[in-house]
Design a protein around this nucleic acid. Structure first.
Length: 316
DNA sequence: AACAGACTCAACCGCCTACGA
DNA sequence: TTCGTAGGCGGTTGAGTCTGT
């Protein structure tokens, strides 16, 4: 059978979304919830493809999204998961609920790939890490040479500017990290953001207000199943949210893995999707093992930070 | 100040899979 | 079982912005 068009191409508007369109879309989703995207342009009068509506919502308008300013820790997660899962951005995004697959994909293509290339070159000059390195034994789906590249991250000039270990002033590090992770930092500090980006933030804030005043079923955490039910790793993500300036502070028990481990990709694209197919079953145990270790490490890091000490993320 | 090249990221495109008729 | 459709995903693009000269 031929590939059907996703929508009637005639009269479909393309290009950047306007604030008015965003408001219409957000209002509609507030009322009806995400899903049934086919009906969205029909019912709202938006001259947009249903896919475009879904993309706009999942990538930019839905609450809880953190834009830009990837932390070194997030970098580490992305690099590591990419080495394990390959370019399965949706699966990787399931470990970073505040990030969209598109964002992660862009960040990978723009920043991380360059860094890895850089370090690959460095690795060709310097000796490889000893085989006792923890991640060296983790199997990868993306080629053996891929796994250990991130160990060289601190060598990157770019990265060293972010890495707490590269800073001697703890307060500076903390401030830096928090500033970079603030949900509003991108708007206030990112001069590269388009003028409309701030409008998106405004909409998001409006939406946040709506969500806060709405019954739980409208909340982000409720659109998708309780993450702690679906994915034991979300506690880890909650910690990340805390580190990002959020208010959720997990308990130590939250950091502990809760068996049996679920398939990470079950959270799906940006945390909203239905379970993805079996083909996303990857080497889960290594991932989970690593993330659990990571989470445990972060508990220590959290304590260190609260004590005014400069913690060093495990990844680098 | 002006220009060119590099960079960033929002959005689109095309393919795939699930699901229902 | 087959076909049509919707939703989802990864790759790619192009416009806007930034940076260096």
């Amino acid at each position: 059978m031929g590939r059907p068009p996703c929508c009637d191409k005639v009269g479909i508007k393309k290009g950047p979304w306007t604030p008015e369109e965003d408001i219409i879309l957000v209002s509609y989703i507030q009322e009806h919830g995400p899903g049934n995207w086919r009906s969205v342009p029909i019912n709202t009068g938006l001259m947009r493809c249903s896919k475009s509506c879904r993309l706009r919502w999942t990538n930019y308008l839905r609450p809880g999204i953190r834009r830009g300013n990837f932390t070194p820790h997030e970098e580490g997660i992305i690099v590591h998961l990419q080495s394990l899962l390959g370019n399965r951005w949706a699966a990787i995004a399931s470990y970073l609920p505040q990030r969209t697959d598109n964002d992660i994909k862009n960040y990978w293509n723009i920043h991380l790939k360059k860094k890895l290339k850089k370090h690959q070159a460095i690795g060709a000059i310097f000796a490889p890490p000893p085989p006792s390195e923890p991640s060296s034994i983790i199997p990868t789906t993306a080629g053996a040479g891929h796994v250990d590249l991130h160990h060289d991250m601190p060598l990157s000039k770019d990265y060293s500017s972010l890495h707490p270990a590269a800073c001697t002033n703890t307060a500076e590090v903390t401030h830096q990290l928090i500033a970079r992770r603030s949900p509003f930092a991108a708007t206030d500090g990112d001069s590269s953001s388009s003028s409309y980006a701030s409008s998106v933030d405004n909409i998001s804030r409006l939406l946040d207000g709506f969500m806060k005043s709405s019954p739980p079923h409208n909340n982000t955490a409720d659109i998708k199943p309780s993450a702690t039910e679906v994915n034991p790793l979300l506690s880890f993500n909650q910690y990340q949210y805390h580190m990002a300036g959020g208010t959720t502070l997990p308990t130590f028990n939250d950091m502990l893995p809760s068996p049996p481990p679920q398939q990470p990709a079950l959270m799906g694209h940006s945390g909203y999707d239905e379970p993805r197919q079996q083909h996303q079953q990857g080497p889960l145990s290594p991932i989970e093992k690593w993330l659990f270790e990571e989470a445990a490490e972060q508990v220590t890091g959290l304590m260190d930070l609260s004590d005014g000490c400069c913690s060093v993320p495990m990844m680098f």
